[in-house]
Computed example of a mutant assay.
Amino acid sequence: MTETTTFHDHHGQPAIQIQSPDGAQATVLLHGAHVVSWVPAGGTEQLYLSPQADYSAGKAIRGGIPVIFPQFEQKGPDRSLPRHGFVRNRAWQLESQRQGTGHAQATLQLSDSDETRALWPHGFELELTVSVSGAQLELELYVRNSGSTVWPFSAALHTYLAVSELNRVRLHGLEGHSYIDNLLNSEALEDHPEKSFSGEFDRIYEKASSLLLTEGKRRVQIQSDNLPDAVVWNPGPDKCAALSDMPADGWQHMLCVEAARILQPKTLSPGEEWTGRQCLTFSVA
């Protein structure tokens, strides 16, 4: 494998362009190890990134794939932490960038600092490895307890998928899975073989690690490993209009399908490690 390091400017943030020999590419910011673009070989952009996203230091970027750790909303193990944790708006470091004969990848790192310990008094090491090859985007989140205390965490890869029109989208693979509906504050079992969407939607599905999003002839297969929950979210027209970093019609052009560990947080003892993965595969029927 060959190794190269090239940084680009993305709205004032240093970015890494990952491109495999077959043309598949992704763009990752050092800010939050945030994937802001994925274009499969011979394909078009598959991620939604808000044209009004705020790239200021310390801000969370709307769209792409933010990394959520060690808390997910109010459902993680520590409700005193900021919403969705604190790693999505920290400066990560590039550990390595490589290109092989059939794929390309980059690994970014983040570890605890005085700033993070002021929020969460624990030692940790994180790595996010982003790989592209042909029609696939693979993300691997590695977590290690580098401190002296036991701690639990939640994690998610908060994937914003781009869609042409939300009402044309169908999401398959949820039938038979229990879910929490955050809008109704209720729990139920999904009985639809495919889900359609027309507005605000906010559910956490349990043990849903193999899903398929379709829109016309477009297909995006969503597979996860060790991230057993699936968060399906769309702000709908009213909440979207209230978001300063989204256009009013942005809700019609995205659907979050997130690989997550929320309902059963993971606990790591000093020296223990954990890895979760998500793989997205694009195809045309």
Rank of each mutant, 00 (worst) to 15 (best):
P237H: 11
P237F: 14
P237S: 04
P237E: 06
P237G: 02
D238F: 15
D238L: 15
D238T: 15
D238S: 14
K239V: 15
K239D: 10
K239G: 08
C240I: 11
C240V: 08
C240P: 06
C240Q: 00
A241T: 10
A242K: 15
A242V: 12
A242P: 10
A242E: 15
L243G: 02
L243V: 11
L243D: 06
L243T: 12
L243W: 00
S244T: 15
S244L: 13
S244H: 08
S244K: 11
D245K: 00
M246D: 02
M246I: 13
P247E: 05
P247C: 03
A248D: 13
D249C: 05
G250T: 08
G250K: 05
G250I: 08
G250S: 02
W251P: 03
W251D: 00
Q252W: 07
Q252S: 08
H253S: 13
M254W: 11
M254P: 01
M254R: 05
M254Q: 13
L255W: 05
L255G: 08
C256G: 07
C256V: 02
C256Q: 10
C256T: 02
C256F: 12
V257L: 05
V257I: 10
V257R: 01
V257H: 04
E258S: 00
E258Y: 01
E258I: 00
A260C: 06
A260Q: 08
A260H: 07
A260R: 06
A260G: 06
R261N: 11
R261M: 01
R261Q: 12
R261K: 12
R261G: 07
I262D: 03
I262A: 02
I262P: 15
I262T: 00
L263M: 10
L263T: 12
Q264R: 10
Q264V: 10
Q264P: 09
Q264C: 10
Q264N: 12
P265Y: 00
P265L: 00
P265M: 00
K266L: 09
K266A: 09
K266V: 13
T267M: 05
T267P: 12
T267Q: 13
L268F: 06
P270C: 03
P270E: 03
G271Y: 00
G271V: 06
E273C: 11
E273Q: 14
E273K: 04
E273F: 04
W274C: 04
T275Y: 04
T275S: 15
G276C: 06
G276S: 09
G276E: 07
R277N: 09
R277A: 12
Q278R: 01
Q278C: 11
C279V: 15
C279G: 02
C279D: 07
C279E: 11
T281C: 13
T281F: 07
T281N: 09
F282Y: 12
F282M: 13
S283I: 05
S283P: 02
V284W: 14
V284N: 08
V284T: 14
V284F: 12
V284Y: 12
